[in-house]
Design a protein around this nucleic acid. Structure first.
Lengths: 333, 333
DNA sequence: TTGTACGCGTTATCAA
DNA sequence: TTGATAACGCGTACAA
């Protein structure tokens, strides 16, 4: 079942079939019709490998996605894929488990498959990745990474977000904070956030003790366990910042379980990856992170770059700031 | 940068380079070494399109994933990808947004890219998909679908799960239930669950009124809103079943917000897609759904089929039954 | 407007 | 063990 088969059935040459299907305007209407019917009847599906070989392009963008099971990446990926699809590109995902996330073979596989462009999600892709991309130049964009890394990156301003939420807590009289966030070891972004947090806290004369910071994965259960650990340490903390709303929801449930009133005895606040923090009870004050927007802008950037246009949608920082929900005042004295 | 370049640098023929890289044992150690060094120095990356064209295979499995942003698919996909990767296959994802989920062009793109096998996630893929797959035969497995659909399907027994949870509620004295679940219109599986639920309820002389059933997407926010709607209807319900733990968590927060005590005034129970229902406050009784196991078994099935083995890991129903957490007794009288 | 023929980069067959 | 050569299926100059 190849072009040749369709051609003989339609009584034309293979070249004509190719044109009739890929560039209909180059062929006479009746021929086009005959070819289409023949292709339809045979259930013809083009061989993408041959096409890619001949055209030297694949209309495909590869995405490398560590921590795929996490909370926010799926929405970002879906936004990216939608945007690319609108412009005729297919998104090719590589979603390795954690152990393989930094394996150079991953990117190599994408390149071998001939992706026209690459999206790197998350932080701390190994130097080998960037070396390979330098050796095989093509449009590339990072998402949800650190802005000072190599190449363009669609991300948002952690510093501004941190400032907004810490300001909010400071205004309510909180002085001693705790923090439940992502692992710092393998995540440049988490380091960035942590650094910004420490700065913001220091700037306002607040404290955030080392043993009041817990690193864990971004999940409901993890937040629950982390808050249990914090409570067991009996720290004089009045507010806890959570890295995303799953962590916040888990922490909230741990507080409920321990009989701590929120926000009277402990305030919770955090970063809102999934838009449900306002629905928690009590609703939490959060900084909204523009997840889907990041996927969309990254897609537009790549589309422009692939089209040879100067990327009209530059990979700029989008700061997400909207605080909402409620946070309690710190107890007096 | 092609085989030929590597060949001339190494002073051998292109064929030898191909062998040295793909089947090292077929070439003399010193030649192999020279070739490898040349390839390394040039940063050679094979052209997958050419390889696919010559070998007539791609070592790639395509997955079609509607509702990608949903709660459980990412974990299932990651398990699938890990399993396939262990056996040398790359997973090629197509994650369309809802509007495009049933577009035949999706599957066509996968086929054009030459996937050796296909995984269909979720239910209700259009007949056109199965027609195309019949016309282009290759291993195919459905995940999280209805077992009586076309071809093999890795799924679990909704009926048994429903029975377990309804039994539990019945034993606690509940008679009037509500249900918050997925949309029935576009989801064979949700229909299956709903049907099983109605059967189970009827069998035990319980009631589940039409206006006590709410269809919505599987999310925290959706569960919250749904429970608010249920409360507004002032139905004489003592327990609410939730389609997954996001819905349950959302429903729980709505109950908290309304000042309803759980489980004294309203019991919650449901299906646990994400393993955090036991961490809610109070912990909910749930039926655990074996998400990752499904991804893994589907992967093994495809690997076997691709290797020409009779699929040693048949796509059978895996029933997930473990109830845990706590549910309150129904109020007397 | 359509047919012909070549090239894309790799693997596989066959001879050396 | 290695080199030469013929596919693989499609796009596209170029010729008709």
């Amino acid at each position: 079942m190849s072009l040749a088969d369709v051609a003989s059935l339609a009584g034309v040459s293979p070249g004509t079939v190719s044109r009739a299907l890929s560039r209909p305007d180059m062929v006479q209407p009746d021929t086009r019709q005959r070819v289409r019917e023949a292709a339809e009847r045979l259930g013809y599906v083009a061989n993408g490998a041959a096409r890619a070989l001949a055209m030297r392009r694949t209309a495909t963008v590869g995405a490398l996605i560590p921590r795929f099971g996490g909370s926010s990446f799926p929405s970002m990926v879906q936004a990216l894929e939608s945007t690319l699809a609108e412009h005729g590109y297919t998104l090719l995902l590589s979603a390795p488990d954690h152990a393989r996330a930094r394996d150079p073979a991953l990117l190599r596989t994408l390149l071998e498959r001939g992706v026209d462009a690459v999206a790197l999600l998350g932080s701390d892709h190994p130097p080998a990745f960037h070396a390979m991309l330098a050796a095989h130049p093509r449009p590339c964009v990072r998402l949800w990474g650190a802005p000072d890394g190599p190449g363009p990156c669609v991300t948002f301003d952690e510093g501004a977000a941190i400032d907004a939420i810490v300001d909010h807590l400071a205004a309510l009289g909180h002085r001693r904070l705790a923090f439940i966030g992502g692992r710092v070891a393998d995540n440049e972004r988490a380091r960035w956030r942590r650094h910004g947090l420490l700065q913001a806290v220091a700037r306002r004369g607040m404290t955030l003790a080392d043993d009041a910071m817990i690193e864990c994965d971004y999940g409901f259960r993890e937040g629950h366990v982390a808050m249990q650990a914090l409570l067991a340490r009996r720290l004089p903390v009045t507010a806890t910042l959570c890295g995303n709303d799953y962590l916040a929801a888990g922490a909230l449930s741990a507080l409920h379980a321990a009989g701590w009133e929120v926000p009277r005895r402990m305030s919770l606040a955090g970063f809102n990856d999934n838009d449900f923090a306002p629905f928690l009870q009590p609703p939490l004050t959060t900084v909204r992170v523009p997840i889907a927007e990041m996927g969309e802008r990254a897609g537009l950037y790549l589309v422009d770059a692939l089209a040879g246009r100067a990327p009209a949608a530059p990979a700029l920082l989008a700061a997400g700031l909207v605080a909402r929900g409620s946070t309690g005042e710190a107890p007096r004295g």
